[in-house]
Amino acid sequence: MTGMRLPAKAAVYALVAISVLLVVFPLLWMVAAALKTQAQIIDPNGSLLPVHPQWGNLSRAWNIAPFGTFFVNTAIFSIVTTTGQIATGMLAGYAFAVFDFPAKRVAFYLVMSGLMIPFTVVIVPVVQLLADFGWVNTWQGLLVPNIASALGCFLFRQFFLSAPAELGEAARIDGAGEWRIFWRVYRPLAQPMIAAFTVIAFLQNWNNFLFPLVVTSSEHLMMISQGLTIFQGQITGTAYNLLMAGSLIAVVPVLVVAMIAQRKVVEGLTLGAIR
């Protein structure tokens, strides 16, 4: 298609520019609004750009709600659940691909049924279970139900099914145990897959809103998404500059990480959907 005529090329670039603007504009609007004064915010004819950037809005927002606690909590939650999802998913996926054991098929279908049951459908009984355990408003209530990922198990199983058998056979002849074969031979092979899954699992856990919302209500356990809604309740009326400053605080760290790990993010987002 190198033979495209100039008007056609220009049209493509123009449409792409509009599409990019569709994504970027709301984010730029957020930055601009976060730096405006309250008077500029409520003026219907005010400039779209912050005339005298109010950098102080960011620190004011940071001080209204315990954003530090929110970030630490979100980090703990995301790191623990992502690590858990990868470890348990990889082990189970490996076992389903490699070993032959009693009731394997039943076990596999049970795990796969987890893919057919959206969390949103069982949200009420899950909270009831956690209440029975006395786990509402606790770390274990937040973490334990999110440690296993049926999707992770499935993806790792597919991966290990296509891994070469000779490597394991050679190691076995050399007298390596099953754990050693898994850890030293097959886990390193799965590294690209682990990286892609880590990135999307981490982002999903970081952004998880509904689950923490129904399991916690105390501020010292709150994560950034829920914390933002608390923050909104604490600022008064139309202080949208502060609301946007708070949103900016929540967006920037994720944006930076996503841009750094860009290729893995794209890989992860298309993983599991169509390959």
């Binding site: 970027v24 957020m30 809103f209 933002l228 946007m244 967006v251 996503a258 993010v265 987002l269």
Partner: peptide, 15 residues
Amino acid sequence: FVIPLVVPPVATAFI
């Protein structure tokens, strides 16, 4: 086009 997918939806919903 990846950005809206990965940043916290609560924050962008406020925008």
